[in-house]
Simulated assay, not measured.
Amino acid sequence: MKILGYTFIVTGGASGLGESVVRSLIEQGAFVAIFDINVKLATTLVEELGKNKCYFPSSVDVTVEDQVNIAVQKTLQYFSTSTLRGAILSSGIVFSPMDGYGPDKTLTSYSQFEHIIRVNLLGTYCVAQKVAQELLRNEPVNDDGERGVIITVSSILGLDGTLVGYGTSKAGIAGLTLPLAKELAPQGIRVMSIAPGPFDTPIVQRQNNTAPTCLYPSRYGQPKEFSDLVVQVIGMRMLNGSVIRLDGALKA
């Protein structure tokens, strides 16, 4: 499926991997709506990239169904001459502000676990479902009957079993990929997931660069490398129902 002239939604698009996806999609000629809770960063990015190409409907909490519904409808109205063709769901948190339990409160409490699962896993599905609902209305764009694509973001920490709350939420996102792809396949909607290793984003920077580098290349991934893969996934119809590791051979 082509990108030029179509609209895409990017959650977590105000910074990190999501911001890079926003930039790459606009470079490819797309119209992009940013769903994020960070008003300052999102507004600044829209001003830089241009309001004719980039849109921020207002602060969006992906766990609140009504907010997501409103943001999707605002996006459709804002880019009314374009067609929504997909979403890249990259919003998420690593840690919870709630207290843990046990020695030094370092073990994962139920409230921590619930909070991370709600934001990362349920938030991802909330936007995926609302976007899929709109993609169903599209006319197919090619001889395969494709109506759109949904790309989620998992993590090697989820695939390799690290960090109880975050790892489980990202494992859930990976596990969602094939069932959702099968459910939406008859409607011409593809579902893919990317599981990145350590990338040079604000999350890694806040950890004072203590995250391990990839094996080869022996460095952190660059956000542009992630967004380049997103562009390739959108364009390659045979990519469906799979999780792609983007980790330079690193295992968590």
Rank of each mutant, 00 (worst) to 15 (best):
T44K: 15
N240V: 06
A252C: 15
F95S: 13
V119P: 00
V72R: 02
Q67E: 15
G172P: 03
A181N: 08
N138S: 05
K53N: 13
T83D: 01
F56W: 14
G50V: 08
V164I: 14
K53A: 12
H115G: 00
I244A: 04
E19Q: 15
E48D: 12
S58Y: 09
G5R: 07
L239K: 06
A132Y: 04
I26A: 04
L121F: 14
P202I: 14
G148K: 04
A33I: 05
Q133S: 15
F113T: 05
N138C: 06
F79G: 01
D36C: 05
V230D: 03
V39Y: 11
G158P: 02
Y166E: 00
T44V: 08
E47R: 13
R237K: 10
M98S: 11
G161V: 08
R118M: 11
R85A: 08
N52W: 02
S155D: 12
T177F: 13
V233M: 10
Q112V: 06
L17G: 00
I156W: 07
P97F: 08
F35K: 01
K130E: 10
Q187A: 14
D99F: 12
R85G: 03
L76M: 10
P196I: 04
I26D: 07
T162R: 09
V153P: 00
T108D: 04
V243L: 02
Q222G: 04
V22S: 01
G175R: 07
N69T: 07
L49V: 10
V191W: 02
R245M: 03
K251N: 13
A181C: 13
T44C: 06
M192V: 15
L41P: 00
G188Y: 03
T162A: 13
V60F: 03
T177H: 06
I151W: 10
G148D: 08
P196A: 06
G248Q: 06
S24Q: 09
T168S: 15
K105P: 01
P103V: 08
S155P: 09
I93V: 15
K170L: 06
G145C: 06
V164E: 09
V46I: 14
V22K: 01
A174Q: 05
R137A: 08
G29A: 05
V233W: 01
Y6R: 12
S58D: 14
A42R: 02
R118V: 05
S90P: 01
C126P: 00
P198Q: 10
L136Q: 01
